[in-house]
Amino acid sequence: MTAFGYIVKYLLFPGFVFSAVVGLLTTWVDRKVTARVQYRVGPPWYQPFADTIKLLGKEVVVPAGARTTGFLVMPVVGLAAATLASTILWLVNLDPTVSFVGDTIVVLYIMTIPALALIIGGSASGNPLGILGASREMKLMFGYELPLVMAVLTTVVKVGSFSFEKILIHQEYNGVMLGSVSGVLAFIVAIFCAQAKLGFIPFDIPEAETEIAGGTHIEYSGAPLAVVRLNTAIMYLVMPLFIITMFWGGVNFVGWRILTSILKYVAIVVIIVVVKNTNPRVRIDHALRFFWGPMFVLSAVALILATLGY
């Protein structure tokens, strides 16, 4: 692949444009389902796009006392990283023989960059609530990172390699991870971690609109806010895709598999939306206890079962 080819893939398909469109559509599904659960009509399908375009044209206000450069650049850094994670995952899914850029560890680390960017942005905002949100986001992050890593390692141990290519091929021939006990346990852990990574209820502690008025997002306005939102939208695509790749045999656009791929994606999104709509927000120490307690035990059991071959 040439450098130009890389850039086209990164910017158009399956990179930025594609991921943003699918991600924004997913946020629409989320909003629509939420609305129906609450007996509302919900927005039309183009609402997220309209919101984004409108925000791009609005005035940007940076509070006095904020560290301007860091505050404005960080959302863009997060977006670039989220897009990269999406590109890597899509490319390896569409053609498992072509290993692009990196393996599980690389993607796992790249997926922390959007959260890190939000933390630094919130810290640079100069707003105490933004800083509070940043510290909560960080605590949440090292809360879920441990079980998430162990859930991912369940697959890695079973396959014996960090490479996506081998993980997908292994599942192709030996059945998906979800077909084994350890796979199911790790899958459950990964779904909860995804919920936290996306900052959704019950783990929307860093944003907590009713409590700290948006936390890390509090001072963002105009184009930076649009970027922050796009960031969330792309991560909404990346996390389910990552989980499908690790535990559910990946996605593909060849023949009838296009249908199953979409169904897998929708299934995970529905699980996330249902959890989101049926739970209250927990406190940060509850969240930490949840991830270092039951989730840790569950993922440890999964990992032990995987080393034993179950």
Binding site: F16, G57, V60, L79
Partner: peptide, 23 residues
């Protein structure tokens, strides 16, 4: 690729909202 992404994002900033911000 990350650098390309960041440059592009900054360009978006520059061309929307006329690149201006108030502090």
């Amino acid at each position: 690729l990350i650098v390309v992404g960041i440059i592009l994002g900054l360009l978006v900033y520059a061309f929307t909202g006329r690149g201006a911000y108030r502090t």
